[in-house]
Amino acid sequence: MKKIHIAAIGILLVALALIFTASQDFSTYASFKDAAATTSQVKIVGELAKDKEIYYDPAEDPNYFSFHVIDKDGVTRKVVMNRAKPQDFEMSEQIVVTGKLQGEEFMASDILLKCPSKYKDEEIYLRAETEE
């Protein structure tokens, strides 16, 4: 066997080892129940509870944003983010929040929204303007 082959196999082994260690980053989606059981960060997939309050008042505090998420088990909890409210938040079909539970509130450090694409499936604009 040539050195170069050994090097190639070595690189492949390193790749496998790294992927194996990296796989802890590839989590599964947790629920609020799982979040209560751990102190580390979890990723929760759910829907926005549209009947509950979505609070963001930039004039009061531009870094405080709260809303409610229903997780895949149907549990609803308040989620708080110390950040500005993302665009098109209300339109989201699915929400993925990353963070941890603190008391009753879920403190989110990151949020990912799955929105129906705005520029697809849209009504055909008519030339006539619609006014008040």
Partner: peptide
């Protein structure tokens, strides 16, 4: 100006009014 109730300091101070 920021309110005190912000728990996570790294994220808290990103925006200003």
């Amino acid at each position: 100006v920021m309110r005190e109730l912000v728990q996570d300091e790294t994220m808290a101070n990103q925006n200003i009014l």
